[in-house]
Design a protein around this nucleic acid. Structure first.
Lengths: 123, 123
DNA sequence: CAACATACCTCATCTGTCAATGTATCTCAT
DNA sequence: ATGAGATACATTGACAGATGAGGTATGTTG
């Protein structure tokens, strides 16, 4: 099972913001970077990627500029804004909370089948 | 920020399956149980809850039966099927993978701003 | 009797992801 | 030089899951 953005739905924006904390970059490169970092496990579909950039630009989390490439395809460079950094920090906190909750709801107390009748409460 | 299913999008089904490993239950009770377990942090909207049950029933992960309550509102009891257990196990594995990936992409290597020029690779 | 809790259900809408498709430039092997 | 493949961005329409708003019905309690 290869991980696509559907499982991380809602965190695409945060992931991109996080990447940009390393400095300005552009879509294609960022997606390659994601593939590299994740050991090939994760990559964004292009449509997902570029809609995310629009969203982030419109909400003031990133700014965009066209690069002045002398050769090769044109590139659109993105950079974090202060609002973007704030948003990232907030999403990171949300992730940590979500992670704990899902750990609790999905994984903790592994064995508790047929325990309902007893006083022993698993959760 | 109160956690709703939108942040855990896609894991609603797994959460319900997990609850049912403790034995047969019905929608309203399961939602209360979720609120209790999560210390009030999490609850499913009713529409989300019941669409999830439909989905799970259609995909053969749970079975449903009407309770024979002598008094009070009628209840629809759900129970895990073998397919449901298998599905849960699979979703649990998916969650663990997703969790590690998001930790990596969102949290690890906290300080690396302006390091792009150097050979020192953060990720 | 009114309010509230219990308990289930459906419909319309919104959001994020994605497949498909299109554009354009450059490199490299044949 | 021609065709394949990589680079790089963009748009469209479809789809799935979550939710707000509304509905039904019963039982309890002030």
């Amino acid at each position: 099972m290869s991980l696509t953005a559907d499982l991380l739905r809602g965190y695409t924006d945060a992931i991109l913001l996080r990447l940009l904390t390393a400095g300005e970059s552009y879509g294609y490169e960022m997606n390659q970077e994601l593939a590299r970092i994740s050991g090939g496990r994760f990559e964004l579909k292009e449509a997902t990627l570029y809609t995310a950039f629009r969203r982030l630009e419109e909400s003031g989390c990133i700014t965009a500029r066209w690069g002045d490439e002398k050769s090769g395809a044109r590139r659109r460079y993105y950079a974090l804004t202060p609002a973007g950094r704030e948003r990232l920090a907030q999403e990171q906190r949300a992730w940590e909370e979500t992670r704990e909750l899902l750990d609790l709801l999905l994984l903790d107390g592994a064995s508790f089948a047929d325990d309902m009748e007893e006083d022993r409460v698993i959760w």
